[in-house]
Amino acid sequence: MTPSVPNPAQWLDRYGDELFRFALSRVSDTTVAEELVQETFLSALDGLATFRAEASERTWLFVILRRKIIDHYRRQARSTRVGLEEVEAGGPTEADFFNPENGHWTNAQAPVSWLNADAALEQQELHEVLARCQARLPAQQSAVFAMRFVEELSAEEICQELGLTASNYWVLVHRAKLQLRRCLEKHGLGKN
């Protein structure tokens, strides 16, 4: 295999659109996605010496972009960090879903069947609704959810990135899931 030599003058034309789509698939904001791509190219320029010839230039740029996206999630989560006491289980958010007296689902929030999910929403519509629902989550929940289920980082890695304890992390994941499923049902899932 011919060793690959980075060619910064070609990066934008060769990889710009692909990197942008990847960034936009994670952050859902055009301006932020553009900034992430630009930061990726600038970091790559700074780190040209660290490029290993056996790796592909494209793979290397994507590794840098993924790191930028995780940094973005971290900033997003930390900008709205709530006090630890507010993240404790059983806080006001979960009380919306479970009867405080017996811990069982409230009538209004009990999960309905999604057996007809395919009929209720086309796949593309489902993806769009889910993206909108994710965007409405509180920033910390949104970041934790994306890092775990889109970037597929481990719980340990996320706790380390965001400075969370394991129990706070699980509360955030749980609340994100509760709110996402409620949001999807509000937008038509499981209603036909």
Partner: peptide, 8 residues
Amino acid sequence: REHSGPTL
């Protein structure tokens, strides 16, 4: 979305 989104 990685494969079908808009371009720069």
